Simulated assay, not measured.
Amino acid sequence: MNDQPIDGRLVSLSRAEIEDLLAAAAARGARQALKDIGLDNGEAREDIRELRSLLGALRLARRTAWQTTVRVLTTVFLAALLALAGIKLKLLG
């Protein structure tokens, strides 16, 4: 560290004062970060809740799309098997 005097005096802080200073700086930095991304107003909590809800809906839609795709492919495969079995048994022509 630099032990050079400031205005002719060394600055000396207790551990508690340093922790308070760090906590204040962290809080100020967090407020600035929220402000930088536009979440510094009173509606930020609701905005985050809505974003989480949208992400949940997107995940559900993606899962449903995969399930539907698998069901359609399974149905097509089974229908083809039945058609082939019908042809083989001369039920369909």
Results as ranks from 00 to 15, higher is better:
Asp40Ala: 14
Leu92Gly: 02
Asn41Gly: 15
Asp7Tyr: 09
Ala57Leu: 13
Arg15Trp: 10
Ala16Gln: 12
Ala23Met: 15
Ser14Trp: 07
Gln32Gly: 08
Val70Asn: 06
Ala30Tyr: 09
Ala85Gly: 03
Thr64Met: 01
Arg63Trp: 00
Ala23Cys: 15
Lys90Arg: 13
Ala65Ile: 00
Leu22Arg: 06
Glu46Gly: 06
Thr64Trp: 00
Gly86Ser: 07
Ala27Trp: 03
Ala65Thr: 00
Ala61Cys: 04
Gln67Ile: 05
Gly42Glu: 08
Lys88Thr: 11
Ala33Pro: 00
Thr64Cys: 00
Asp40His: 12
Ala44Arg: 09
Leu91Phe: 06
Gly93Met: 02
Ile48Asn: 02
Val11Gly: 00
Arg31Phe: 06
Ser12Arg: 03
Trp66Asn: 00
Arg45His: 13
Glu43Pro: 01
Pro5Met: 07
Leu39Trp: 05
Ala26Leu: 14
Ile18Trp: 04
Ala23Ile: 15
Val76Ala: 14
Val76Arg: 07
Leu22Trp: 03
Leu22Cys: 06
Asn2Phe: 10
Leu34Met: 14
Gly93Ile: 01
Thr74Lys: 06
Asn41Trp: 13
Asn41Ala: 15
Arg15Leu: 11
Thr64Arg: 01
Pro5Ser: 11
Asp47Ser: 13
Gln4Gly: 08
Gly8His: 05
Arg9Asp: 10
Arg71Val: 02
Arg45Ile: 09
Leu78Arg: 02
Thr64Gln: 03
Gly29Phe: 03
Leu54Gly: 05
Ala79Glu: 14
Gln67Val: 08
Thr74Cys: 04
Asp7Thr: 08
Leu58Glu: 04
Val11Thr: 04
Arg63Glu: 02
Ala85Trp: 04
Leu78Tyr: 02
Ala79Arg: 15
Leu81Ile: 10
Leu21Tyr: 03
Arg62Lys: 12
Ile37Thr: 11
Arg52Tyr: 06
Val76Lys: 06
Lys35Arg: 13
Arg59Ala: 04
Leu55Asn: 06
Ala16Thr: 11
Ser12Met: 08
Lys35Asp: 14
Ala44Glu: 14
Ala30Gln: 09
Gln67Tyr: 05
Ala61Leu: 06
Gly56Phe: 01
Ala26Met: 11
Ile48Glu: 04
Leu81Phe: 10
Arg62Trp: 02
Leu82Asp: 09
Leu89Asn: 09
Arg31Asn: 12
Ala44Gly: 13
Gly29His: 07
Lys35Ser: 09
Leu55Val: 07
